[in-house]
Design a protein around this nucleic acid. Structure first.
Length: 253
DNA sequence: ATGGCCAATTTTATTGGA
């Protein structure tokens, strides 16, 4: 199974690029984040013509996640399904070919200490709670824009970024708590070197200078990870006209 | 080449992203 995740930063702005990418890479599953559209404006027909079913959890203007798959998704759920606030569309899950796939768009958190920062930390706690209701012995893939770089080797300037919401020690601790549920970071199974990023700021020539962060991940449950044969980041997609600020991340099982 | 923010909306400014 070829599994990918991509924060497209608006599906409407990226539709043409997305369709071209699907035609070339033909993943079995693609998790999408930051759709920025309501369900009714999602381009389901164009994707269907390209050979993909879509399970969508959209939202106007902000957020929005989806799971595309060659075979229809089963048992689709949206949000955490706990007693908390599910008004932001940041999580969708489905069963695809025996794998429990999650497409997650973690909150950014804005500034450390802000309300959004507290929301981010709380959201990550709720995700751990959601996972605690899943069976860790079954194949599960947590994919998406985590908005957290796990380690110093995932950040171009770790000292400078430590004060930011994307690499703050508290955010990293919250991510480690999620990983400790029983995940393996599939990219790091195959690529230990520093300087491999999935997001680059649109500003200040960040991409040409490779001033990026690795904040998009495919986390596989430990048993599923044993069958992971390859992983990559398609930084070609950060080039050219009208790119997303994120590149697709892939894992093969 | 990989190039100096981008996208949506509340649209000619503002908000949020990361």
């Amino acid at each position: 199974m070829k599994l990918a995740t991509w924060n497209v930063n608006s599906i409407r702005a990226r539709e043409e690029r997305l369709l071209a990418w699907l035609a070339v890479h033909q993943p079995d599953v693609l998790c999408l984040q930051e759709l920025k559209v309501a369900d009714e404006a999602f381009p389901s027909d164009a994707l269907r013509s390209a050979g993909y079913h879509a399970a969508v959890h959209g939202q106007k203007t902000y957020n929005g996640v989806a799971i595309l798959s060659r075979v229809p998704a089963e048992d689709v759920t949206r949000g955490f399904g706990d007693h908390g606030d599910d008004s932001q569309s940041r999580l969708i899950s489905a069963q695809i070919a025996g794998v429990h796939v999650l497409s997650a768009y973690f909150p950014n958190g804005s500034e450390v200490g802000s309300d959004k920062w507290l929301y981010k930390l709380d959201w990550m706690k709720r995700l751990r709670g959601y996972l605690d209701r899943c069976d860790p012995r079954r194949p599960l893939a947590l994919c998406g824009d985590f908005n957290v770089a796990p380690e110093a080797r995932d950040v171009h300037d770790p000292k400078a970024w430590e004060a930011s919401v994307l690499f703050h020690p508290e955010a990293r601790a919250a991510l480690e708590s999620i990983r400790a549920w029983g995940f393996v970071d599939t990219f790091r199974m195959h690529h230990p070197e520093p300087g491999r990023f999935s997001w680059w700021d649109y500003r200040m020539l960040a991409f040409p200078k490779n001033n990026g962060l690795r904040i998009d991940h495919v986390f596989a449950s430990e048993l599923l990870a044993k069958s992971c044969t390859a992983a990559s980041i398609d930084r070609e997609q950060r080039k050219g006209k009208q790119p997303s600020d994120h590149a697709p991340v892939l894992a093969e099982f």
